[in-house]
Amino acid sequence: MKTSQDLTFHDRVVALTPGGEALEQCLQCGSCGGSCPAGADMDHTPRGLFAMIRAEMEDEVLRSNTPWYCVSCYACTTRCPQQIPITDIMYTLKQMAIQAGHYDHPHATKFSETFIGFVEQRGRSFEAGLATRYHLYHHPTDMVRLGMMGLNMLRRNRLPLRPKSIREVDQLQAILAEAKAIAAKETYR
């Protein structure tokens, strides 16, 4: 059995993505890059990123902003003529970038982390807390604008101030802890 050290960067991306083997079939046709609604803001198109993965440009790939601009709309995935699970590969790249401490523009990560913090704590997301905590830490200057929007949301009864929790939080936390332990050991799918 190979260990993660034996695997190339390309192999690890494939191994961490369900159905990732299809990446080897990339024709470099650009259907993904053309289909991406956020493609204009990406420093590399998904296609370009796949060529870089092939070329083992691990550092550049994990520093790319491309996965962070992915909106998970699956347009690329359904149009890919080689049926590559592109959206899932973007998830894998985000995860690898976080683990490598490589991502230079942390807004998206922090947003995800804040969001998931609530979920792990209570089992439910918490809109008001998310906005406050995320923006307070990361975009304090936006708070005025957001405060107005928050007030508008409140007025329309769309922003409860008290977070909800599930009943069996313990069960959820045990499951997540176990999943994290397995993930930490997992080098190979």
Binding site: Q28, G30, C32, G33, G34, S35, C36, H44, T45, G48
Partner: peptide, 30 residues
């Protein structure tokens, strides 16, 4: 490879046209 063909114009020069959207893979841009 063309991603899509649409009549949803985003700019005045696209009005009334068919817009072919693709990645130009040789320059890596949409």
């Amino acid at each position: 490879r063309v991603a899509e063909i649409t009549d949803a114009a985003h700019s005045p020069e696209e009005e009334g046209k068919l817009i072919v959207i693709a990645e130009d893979t040789l320059i890596g841009r949409q």
